[in-house]
């Protein structure tokens, strides 16, 4: 099943500076793979993505970061919503965030679970796949 939702509060402009803070960064000299680890926090404008470890995929000659592959439990927080998953790939090139592995999105009072979610950060549109289940918590009006 595939449903589309709108994640509010996203004004991710892909030209805002990306700040990554972590406990450590290890670089394998032979393969050149650079990976942040230890409560990694990626912030760009309003977006905040925290993860256990994040691998940086960059273009060698231009030095542009093309993708950030986060794993080890990822939480993605916008101004109004929050989403959790096991892994996420933040693609800076086409400004999308692809979260996979029992995704849980909390929007206000409702919570939506799915297998994977693909968010277009420019528009805030999110597309959920897999067993999508929505739970609405009743307004307890007593």
């Amino acid at each position: 099943a595939q449903t589309d939702i709108a994640l509010g509060g996203i004004q991710a402009d892909s030209s805002a500076p990306v700040e990554i803070t972590a406990d450590s960064l290890s670089v394998d000299q032979e393969t050149g793979i650079a990976a942040f680890s230890g409560n990694v926090l990626i912030t760009q404008g309003e977006l905040r993505l925290s993860a256990g470890s994040v691998e940086v995929v960059y273009d060698d000659d231009s030095g542009d970061i093309t993708r950030l592959i986060a794993s080890g439990g990822v939480t993605f927080v916008t101004a109004t919503d929050a989403a959790e998953a096991q892994t996420a790939v933040y693609d800076l090139a086409d400004n999308t965030l692809n979260m996979t592995g029992d995704v849980l999105i909390t929007q206000g009072r409702s919570a939506i679970a799915a297998d994977s979610m693909r968010v277009n950060l420019a528009t805030g549109k999110a597309q959920l796949d897999g067993r999508v289940r929505t739970t609405l918590t009743q307004q307890d009006n007593n």
């Binding site: 700040e19 803070t21 942040f36």
Partner: peptide, 10 residues
């Protein structure tokens, strides 16, 4: 291995 806090601004 860079540790004891790493901060990158890209």
């Amino acid at each position: 291995v860079f540790n004891e806090g790493v901060r990158l601004v890209y």
